[in-house]
Structures are given as structure tokens and as C-alpha cells.
């Protein structure tokens, strides 16, 4: 029973943490929910701004060693703060792993759902606007 409650508590914790969701523009017009990604790279820039915080990562292609600068959209600063972020959560030079959905236009751009800080393993929800039934 103790295990049961622990499992339940973890599940609820995850749901609770993901609760507040901001909405600004159409998710589906810009991103493709069926094209999910998981990418790791080094933070080069953070725009902690409305209506969406955008951060940039240098991502190295393991095969070709070519480095591409990607950008990722998250929620607004107020939505992110309600999900446990501050303006200093991501710092230039940090190695992070991002999961989310790719842009429809094929550019190196995506909508971030979760961000993991590789140094601590801390996982944060990105206040994504992806709630629309796809």
C-alpha cells in the first residue's frame, strides 16, 4: 500500500506540475505534434520574454560533427515561473536535453514540452501551448 501511494503521489506530482498552460498563438499552425524530437545541446542564448520565452542551443550532429544553432519556444515568463522556472534556470553554456514538437516548415526550430538540465537531471515543464487535440 505504501508503494501504491508513492506511485500515485508521483503521478499526481507530475500532473500538478504541468497544470498551468499558457496560450498565445495556434500551436498546430506552426508545429507538427506528430513530429516529436529529443535533442541535446549547449545553451547559446535565452530570450526571457513575452509572449514566449525562446532559447537557443548549439546542437552537434554526431555523424557529421556539423553544429547547428536551434531555437525552441516555451511559454511566457509568468507561465514558466508557475512551473518552477526563473530567468536564471537556463544559463549560457549549460548542457540541456529538450523534448517537444518540430516546426512544420522544417527549420531548426521547435516547441519545447520539457527541458532537462543535464548537470542535475532536473526536469522542467515548458508551459507549452500544445493542448489542442491533434
Amino acid at each position: 500500500m505504501r508503494t501504491t501511494l508513492l506511485v500515485a503521489a508521483v503521478v499526481i506530482g507530475l500532473l500538478r506540475a504541468a497544470a498551468p498552460v499558457a496560450a498565445h498563438h495556434s500551436f498546430a499552425a506552426e508545429f507538427d505534434a506528430s513530429k516529436s524530437f529529443k535533442l541535446t545541446g549547449v545553451v547559446t542564448k535565452v530570450e526571457w520574454q513575452n509572449p514566449h520565452t525562446i532559447f537557443y542551443l548549439d546542437i552537434t550532429d554526431e555523424r557529421t560533427k556539423k553544429v547547428t544553432n536551434w531555437s525552441f519556444e516555451m511559454g511566457s515568463p509568468n507561465g514558466l515561473m508557475r512551473n518552477g522556472w526563473t530567468r536564471n534556470t537556463l544559463k549560457i553554456g549549460d548542457m540541456v536535453t529538450v523534448e517537444g514538437s518540430l516546426a512544420r516548415d522544417g527549420s531548426p526550430y521547435g516547441n519545447a514540452r520539457t527541458v532537462v538540465l543535464n548537470s542535475t537531471g532536473k526536469r522542467l515543464f515548458a508551459a507549452s501551448s500544445q493542448t489542442e487535440a491533434q
Binding site: N50, P51, H52, I54, N78
Partner: peptide, 12 residues
């Protein structure tokens, strides 16, 4: 309530 100024950086 917290501040939310949508017009700041509307890249969309």
C-alpha cells in the same frame, strides 16, 4: 496575478 505583456516579442 503576474505581469504578461504579449506584445513584447511576438515572433509568430
Amino acid at each position: 496575478l503576474t505581469e504578461y505583456i504579449c506584445q513584447e516579442n511576438n515572433r509568430y
